[in-house]
Nucleic acid binder design. Structure first.
Lengths: 156, 156
DNA sequence: TAAACACCCTGAAGTCACTTTAGGGTCAAC
DNA sequence: GTTGACCCTAAAGTGACTTCAGGGTGTTTA
């Protein structure tokens, strides 16, 4: 099948499919001789579905590569797979906690302004402007890579 | 004060301060004549603290610009401020819900593998590879811009 | 036959909010 | 003079796409 069909089958865009091929996440497609169009078989469809499912789980490309590698080595132990999923789950949980703290802060901030008046009297602006920094501890961020994290995995 | 001092006062990096000046979020600093170093006064310190507090609340630069604008117009109504904070809070809540759904999915997936064995028998891989797509509805994503969202504000 | 439309291709740049790299100057202390 | 901390600029990198720019292919219709 051609790329448009693959895109529709997997709920993905053709641009993303080309991107995945470019970054090596998806193997290169066969090409037609007359017009160089990409052609995909069942294996590519399976792989792309796998990748998209991992993406819906907010896994990074690196994590996905690791799972794909494990999939290609069926005799190896599945310990690393279990660990990867468990660690990813911890990242997600950490991010949830961060956002819940943020939610609380925003609720408190929103309550600083009780009615509509001039901006000069707005409790929200006053709070954001206050000299006292004690209510504004910079939150200690997690190492979660899950989107929204303030820390990316180091590549060193 | 010089940029390093401002950075330490605000828990920010010099690179980020320069970046904020470049993108126009922070007004340009005065410069010394002999070596072109940036010099900052109390107003800059106040502004940067305001900006950093907004960033800890995961507000976008655009949102921060809006609040800074409101701050410069003290006679205007604070309705827009209230609305901005409320909308942002809704985005954060939406993102929390998305992540909680993701957490559930990961828990379920993790439970597909009950003990360590060969990758070929791993329930996690099987689940990610299954032909049946019904457990893999692509989640309907929110329009939340809060980091981790899959949708950015359109600029059109 | 030309136009319209849907689909395909490539490379490059843009998105967001920083962060790092590359290369160079300034200042103070030893 | 050397060393180390600090300052400067421009540009590229980060991650995962997404859009832009420019062009080709195939089918249908007037």
């Amino acid at each position: 099948m051609k790329i448009g069909e693959l895109a529709r089958e997997t709920g993905c865009t053709v641009e993303t499919i080309r991107y995945y091929e470019k970054v090596g996440l998806l193997p290169k497609a066969m090409r037609s001789q007359e017009n160089n169009y990409r052609f995909y078989n069942q294996k590519h469809l399976d792989l792309l579905l796998f990748i998209r499912r991992c993406r819906t789980l907010a896994m990074t490309h690196e994590e996905i590569q690791q799972l794909l590698q494990a999939r290609e080595e069926p005799d190896n132990s599945c310990v690393s797979i279990n660990e990867l999923i468990a660690e990813h789950l911890e990242h997600v949980r950490a991010r949830i906690e961060e956002l819940q703290a943020l939610e609380s802060q925003l609720e408190i901030l929103g309550n600083e302004c009780h009615s509509v008046h001039a901006a000069r009297d707005c409790g929200i602006l006053k709070k954001l402007d206050e000299a006292d920094n004690s209510d504004w501890q910079i939150p200690k961020t997690s190492n979660s890579h899950v989107e929204g994290s303030r820390c990316h995995h180091k590549k060193s």
